[in-house]
């Protein structure tokens, strides 16, 4: 007995440690026993009350992290809003384009604008579609909003489009409402000019201008612009009519190339007449 007692006294720390470890494991195996739940509920409730008493003390660390979290949330929400807006705009644009493709008589080649050139009052854009995709010189280019220009030159995979905002632009057009004919030209700036419209003819601001069937380059009925301003010029029989293009050239991203080519017979006839007139002069 004495020996056992001596052993216990000698190794009391180890024995206590072993005992406490065993008790700890037993408690762990108990886990959240039902008997403990009530007791814990009381303790947690008490702690909650005590924490509530001190909740008025501001916690700078928590405030900082909360601020950071809110800032992050704000940032991600802002980005989401921007993405949604962009998606909505893109959705509207694509819907309009699909609608336009349905309405188009001939087949269309969809192309992306990959480059923009602006030199000596000539506006050009480069498309990512060329001869291999069926894009040929002289084909008209448009968007769902209206006329863009015509293909000036095409390589295997790219095409150069001359915009209607170009010094060389001469387009035969009609006033959609009154069917009055005229010629569209560009003299710089953001607007086009409708020429050859007599003072007696009915043209009002807001009238839509469409391509007429007289054009050898462009199909008829394609929107070109809206009448912005009508003025009677002194000492002239004609009116000065400014047109706002329906196409926003600065935000041009996707276009349709109309595969309807101008008739070669009509083109050659016009060429001959043009030469004859030049010779007469």
């Amino acid at each position: 007995m004495q020996r056992i007692l001596d052993f216990v006294i000698r190794f009391k720390e180890y024995l206590t440690l072993s005992l406490l470890i065993v008790v700890s494991f037993l408690l762990m195996s108990l886990g959240n026993a039902a008997e403990l739940r009530g007791f814990r509920t009381v303790v947690v409730g008490g702690i909650g009350v005590a924490q509530g008493l001190f909740s008025w003390i501001p916690n700078p660390v928590a405030l900082k992290s909360e601020n950071q979290a809110l800032r992050n949330l704000n940032y991600s929400l802002s980005r989401e809003v921007a993405r949604t807006r962009k998606a909505m705009i893109e959705n509207d644009r694509l819907r309009a384009m699909l609608e336009m493709k349905k309405q188009a008589a001939g087949s269309m080649i969809v192309a992306d604008v990959v480059g923009r050139i602006s030199a000596e009052m000539r506006g050009y854009v480069t498309l990512n579609k060329g001869l291999e995709q069926g894009v040929l010189d002289g084909m008209s280019v448009q968007t769902d909003h209206g006329l863009v220009g015509h293909v000036l030159s095409a390589s295997d995979n790219y095409a150069l489009v001359q915009l209607i905002l170009n010094r060389d632009t001469r387009i035969a057009v009609k006033v959609e409402r009154t069917r009055i004919d005229g010629i569209i030209v560009w003299e710089g700036g953001e607007h086009l000019l409708l020429k050859n419209v007599a003072k007696t003819q009915d043209v009002q601001a807001g009238d839509m201008i469409v391509t007429s069937g007289f054009s050898s380059l462009f199909p008829s009925g394609v929107y070109v612009g809206r009448v912005n301003d009508v003025r009677d010029e002194p000492n002239s029989l004609f009116r000065r009519i400014t047109i706002t293009p329906t196409v926003s050239f600065s935000t041009l991203e996707q276009v349709f190339v109309s595969t309807q080519k101008p008739s070669p017979e009509m083109e050659s006839l016009l060429h001959v007449v043009d030469k004859k007139l030049q010779n007469k002069q």
């Binding site: 406490l20 008790v23 700890s24 408690l27 959240n32 403990l36 814990r40 303790v43």
Partner: peptide
């Protein structure tokens, strides 16, 4: 509100 015995051990 930890598992009883974990911190003790």
């Amino acid at each position: 509100a930890d598992v009883l015995g974990t911190n003790a051990l």
